[in-house]
Design a protein around this nucleic acid. Structure first.
Length: 434
RNA sequence: GCUGCGGUGGUCUAGGGGUUAGGACGGUAGGUUGUGGUCCUGCCAGCCCGGGUUCAAUUCCCGGUCGCGGCCCCA
């Protein structure tokens, strides 16, 4: 037999319904935040990603050559493709632009819970308007999605690479040493920091910064620590402004932690950075991450840097919601996944199909979802089939019904029946009053 | 990259060196023909792969593979 490729998944009707509901929910929030959905190809030139992340990434890509020997790869992420798209459009796009996107990404690595070789990201980028207000809009958008999912326990962590840079600068670090120190800080490896040659007083201060553990109110403490190190940081003012805007925009995370040692381990972040964590997911608890970054220099469009965006781990948020629904004993994982008009199963019984098809067509064009029994079998079996499918209503149409012009609608969940005239309007009305 | 646990029909499982490998769910057909998810009957369908030990392996051993966790990593 053939099996799925490693690290990939199939989605049956129930799971797919849930995924569609979540995607729709994300899009509804995006629209409220003024984001416009875009899409880029599933595969790209390999150089796009090696330029962004270095030659080393090739090991983790599904890379291949086409017949003209061009190097291509399935996309491992969506930020670089969106940047590429904007770069190709050059002056055609009104700025600032707010783009959102959703799509599958591919990484060749070991799959585990919450981590697959094919996975989906929902995300956004704001191009052409750097600054605290943009950052607040982006983070607020991410929070709004999280709130809309109904997930109760998650934590927003906010840091600022600019502040870290100011501190590390002041310590005399340059070049690779800065990136190295950021990585160690991101991991909370203070021993490693000291081993890398940073004096112990400074490491102690950095450690205090990492332990502030609180919201915007911790910034004054941070300011004290930072000025005791003799650092003037304009970035700190910007972070303060960003947090104030975030609050004013109504972002209301269940938990907010300002942690100036969050560096996201990436070279291209330059300003505010943030992560959203969900404890119940264990080791793969980060469901969203982003911040302000510089990538347009790769396309010789430095004037558009920095941009601000995030990527949200669609699969992981769903996983977290599934865990929550299970714990709560709730049958609804994603809000609205079961909403909309219920499916009506129409079961022709000993009548020619031509006698029911016009009715089926009328019901469908009126907006009523209709599935048609395509086999002929005992009505009992057909009803069981309709119920197993997830249809909410069933209607048997036989010679008797055609004769009288009356049909019986049955609600499958409890067997309650309603009789009505055999017309689309009457049936719709009967269903909505049941 | 390291590491722990596991693999019996589509799903959940019983079993165990020699069995017609048992059950449940499911799917399908029927129970004399228009209202189900109860019941009865028939049918469908299984020991992850390769090597080893043995007269004999689904069962024991080794390797692989797949799945589930943990660490490392994570654009």
């Amino acid at each position: 037999m053939f099996e799925r490729a490693r690290g990939t998944r199939d989605f049956g009707p129930a799971e797919m319904g849930r995924r569609l509901a979540f995607e729709k929910l994300c899009d509804e929030v995006a629209i409220r935040y003024g984001f416009q959905r875009v899409a880029t190809p599933t595969f790209e030139r390999l150089e796009l990603f090696t330029a962004k992340s270095g030659a080393g990434v090739v090991d983790q890509l599904y890379a291949f050559k086409d017949r003209s020997d061009r190097d291509l790869t399935l996309r491992p992420e969506l930020t670089a493709p969106v940047m590429r798209m904007i770069a190709e459009q050059r002056g055609q796009i009104p700025k600032p632009a707010r783009y959102s996107y959703f799509g599958s990404c591919f990484r060749y690595e070991e799959s585990k819970r919450g981590r697959y070789r094919e996975f989906w990201q929902y995300g956004c980028e704001v191009i052409g308007a750097p600054g605290p207000l943009t950052e607040a809009e982006v983070v607020s958008f991410a929070c709004a999605i999280m709130s809309a999912t109904g997930l109760k326990e998650w934590e927003l962590k906010i840091g600022h690479v600019g502040i870290l840079n100011d501190i590390l600068d002041n310590l005399g670090l340059e070049g690779d040493a800065v990136g190295n120190a950021m990585r160690l800080l991101d991991k909370g490896d203070f021993e490693g920091l000291e081993a890398s040659g940073i004096n112990s007083t400074a490491v102690g201060n950095l450690q205090s910064l990492s332990q502030l553990n609180g919201g915007a109110e911790t910034l004054s403490n941070a300011r004290e620590i930072i000025s005791s190190m003799g650092v003037e940081s304009e970035a700190l003012d910007q972070l303060e402004e960003m947090l104030a805007s975030l609050d004013a925009l109504g972002a209301n995370p269940p938990s907010l932690v300002v942690d100036l040692t969050v560096a996201r381990g990436l070279d291209y972040y330059t300003g505010m950075v943030f992560e959203i964590m969900v404890d119940t997911l264990g080791g793969e608890g980060q469901v969203c991450g982003g911040g302000s970054y510089r990538l347009f220099h790769l396309f010789e469009l430095d004037e558009l840097d920095p941009c601000c965006g995030f990527g949200l781990g669609f699969d992981r948020v769903l996983l977290a919601l599934e865990i929550q629904a299970e714990n709560d004993g709730s049958s609804e994982v994603v809000p609205g996944e079961n909403s909309g008009p219920g499916m009506l199963a129409i079961i022709p019984f000993k009548v020619d199909n031509s006698q029911v098809l016009p009715l089926v067509a009328q019901l469908r064009s009126s907006g009523q979802p209709v599935t048609l029994e395509l086999r002929s079998r005992k009505t009992g079996r057909s009803l069981a089939w309709a119920d197993a499918l997830g249809a909410q209503f069933a209607m048997v149409v036989g010679p008797r019904d055609i004769e009288s012009g009356q049909v019986t609608i049955k609600r499958l969940s409890d067997g309650v029946e309603a009789a009505c005239e055999m017309s689309a309007e009457a049936i719709n009305q009967a269903i909505s009053s049941m």
